[in-house]
Amino acid sequence: MYHLLMFILMMLFWILMSGKFDTFHLVLGAISSLIVAWSSTDLLFQDRGKSPAARASEAGRFVLYACWLFWQIVLANFHVIYLSLTPKPIKETLSPHIFNFKTTLKTDFARFVLANSITLTPGTVTIRVSEDIFVVHAITVKAAGDLEGGSISEMERRVAWVFEKREIGGA
């Protein structure tokens, strides 16, 4: 079942990448996709418990989340431009510090998405993820205050909504 899904995905990817539709290239692509599907299906589908319909709705929610994230990236870039173009001496505007943050997300992939989202949103960068502790570097006191208050838990709530379909109350 999962091998068949993997084979179809890989075949679509091959057609998109090669752009040739004669017999030789299609047969070559089928052979390569077969080898990949046989050897490394486990990389893409880690837990076999979910049904394909749940996976499809997860992908749909992830696209919505990506749209929200794109807007956050634009805000983050205006923040960086504002910080780097202020005429005041740069040492007065910046006040970086490092703090820890504990997450409640379970799967590795959700943690990966949360770490990348923290990196891309205004004022914060993830330094290290070890089990469920995130080490985060904030560039100003204001950004760190936002994080302690709501921004990261807001983002964590959204990631949990995408991947685990549950609501996290409070922090």
């Binding site: 990236i73 634009v74 983050a76 870039n77 960086v80 431009i81 910080l83 780097s84 173009l85 740069i90 040492k91 910046l94 970086p96 990196t119 891309l120 004022g123 960068v125 330094i127 570097h137 560039i139």
Partner: peptide
């Protein structure tokens, strides 16, 4: 341009990574 400016003006390695990680991706 904002990325480059941050990369050159920010005082230490971590803050430079802020500029590089965000601006590089979006641009």
């Amino acid at each position: 341009f904002g990325t480059i400016n941050g990369l050159l003006r920010f005082p230490d390695f971590y803050t430079r990574m802020h500029a590089a990680g965000k601006g590089d991706t979006l641009s």
